[in-house]
C-alpha cells in the first residue's frame, strides 16, 4: 500500500525559559516528540492516543505544517508540510474538538460559504459536498441558525462538515467526540466510518474515548513522552495492557461478593457490586451467567479508559 503519511525519526524540541532568580533565566529543553517513526497508508483510519502532554497535538501540528520538526523527516502526500503549508492546506482537513473554525455570530451556512471561497471549491462540487454533509450529519435545520446557538454536538457536526467540503485527502480529528452525548457521538462515528469507506479519506483520530477507536479504527498507535509505545490492533493493546472492563451490577439486596468464573469482584457497596473482566472478552456470557444465578436489578458496563490501559502498559514494562 502507498504510504500517505511518513514519519522517520521526527523530533520536536521546545526551549523553555524559566525564571531562576530575579533576573536570571534558565533555559531548558523539552522533547515533546522524540524520534517518532510510522507510516499511514492512503485510506487507513488510525487511532492516535496517549495521555495529556504525550505529544499528540504536537504531532498533528507538525503534520499540518504549523510546527516545524527539530529533526527527522516528515512527508504528507509527498509534501514537506512545514515548507509548503499553504499548498498542503488545500488537501487536508482538520477538526479540533475544543476549537471551532465556524463564525460564531453568523448562521452556519455563512461559514460554509467562506470555505467555498477559501478552498476555491468549484460550485458544482461544493453544492454536492454540502448536500451530502447536510444529509448525513443531519444539518438541514441548522443551516440558518447562528453558530453560538448550536449545542456542542450540533456545532461539532457543523465543524466536521466545514473540514470536508473541499474533499481533503486526509482528515485530522482531535477529540471529535469530547463532551458529546451518546446520540451525537454515534452520529459522528457513523459519518466518519462512511466517509472512510466511501471516499477513502485517510483519517487520523486523536481521542480519549476508547469506544471511538473500537468502533472506527483497526489500527491504533499509542504515544507517550513523545515516543511510540504501541502500534497495532486495539485487541492487542488490551492484551499488552491487560486492561479490564468493569460490569457494575445492582442486586436486589445486599449480598456477599459475587463468585463467578468469568470475572472477579473488585468492590462491593451495599447492593451494588463491581465485577472486572478482561477487555478482550465479550460481556454477554458474563451477563447471562450472572442473571441466571443472582437477583440482578440493573447492569451497566464501564470501558477501560485510555489512561488506565497505558498506565498498565508501563507497569508491565517496568516489571519485566
Amino acid at each position: 500500500m502507498e504510504a500517505f503519511i511518513e514519519l522517520d525519526g521526527v523530533e520536536k524540541v521546545f526551549d523553555v525559559r524559566r525564571r531562576a532568580g530575579l533576573l536570571r533565566r534558565e533555559k531548558s529543553q523539552v522533547r515533546a516528540v522524540d524520534g517518532l517513526s510510522f507510516t499511514v497508508a492512503r485510506g487507513e483510519m488510525v487511532g492516535y492516543i496517549g495521555p495529556n502532554g504525550a505529544g499528540k497535538s504536537t504531532t498533528i501540528k507538525m503534520l499540518t505544517g504549523i510546527l516545524t520538526p527539530s529533526g527527522g523527516r516528515l512527508r504528507v502526500a509527498g509534501i514537506d508540510p512545514a515548507r509548503e503549508r499553504t499548498r498542503l492546506a488545500r488537501r487536508i482537513g482538520v477538526v479540533f474538538g475544543q476549537r471551532t473554525t465556524l463564525w460564531w455570530d453568523l448562521p452556519l451556512k455563512d461559514s460554509y460559504r467562506l470555505m467555498h471561497r477559501m478552498y476555491r471549491i468549484p460550485d458544482q462540487r461544493f453544492r454536492e459536498n454540502l448536500e451530502r454533509c447536510v444529509e448525513l450529519l443531519d444539518l438541514g435545520e441548522l443551516l440558518e441558525v447562528p453558530v453560538r446557538q448550536l449545542s456542542l454536538g450540533q456545532r461539532m457536526r457543523g465543524d466536521i462538515a466545514a473540514a470536508l467540503l473541499h474533499d481533503p485527502e486526509v482528515l485530522y480529528l482531535d477529540e471529535p467526540t469530547i463532551g458529546l452525548d451518546v446520540i451525537s457521538k454515534a452520529k459522528v462515528r457513523d459519518f466518519l466510518r462512511d466517509l472512510n469507506a466511501d471516499r477513502g479519506t485517510t483519517v487520523l483520530l486523536t481521542t480519549h474515548d476508547l469506544t471511538d477507536i473500537e468502533q472506527l479504527c483497526r489500527r491504533v498507535m499509542v504515544i507517550d513522552h513523545g515516543r511510540l509505545m504501541y502500534d497495532g490492533a486495539l485487541a492487542g493493546l488490551h492484551e499488552v495492557g491487560e486492561s479490564e472492563r468493569t460490569l457494575i451490577v445492582d442486586l436486589e439486596r445486599e449480598l456477599p461478593p459475587v463468585v463467578i468464573d468469568l470475572a472477579r469482584t473488585v468492590r462491593v457497596e451495599g447492593p451494588r457490586q463491581w465485577l472486572a473482566f478482561p477487555a478482550s472478552q465479550s460481556a454477554a456470557p458474563l451477563v447471562s451467567a450472572l442473571a441466571a444465578r443472582y437477583p440482578v436489578m440493573d447492569l451497566s458496563l464501564r470501558e477501560p479508559d485510555i489512561e488506565a490501559v497505558i498506565a498498565k502498559m508501563y507497569a508491565g514494562r517496568s516489571g519485566q
Binding site: 505544517g65 499553504t86 492546506a89 482538520v94
Partner: peptide, 9 residues
C-alpha cells in the same frame, strides 16, 4: 487558537 488559523490557505 492562532495556530489553527495558520493551516488555512
Amino acid at each position: 487558537d492562532i495556530a489553527t488559523d495558520l493551516y488555512r490557505p
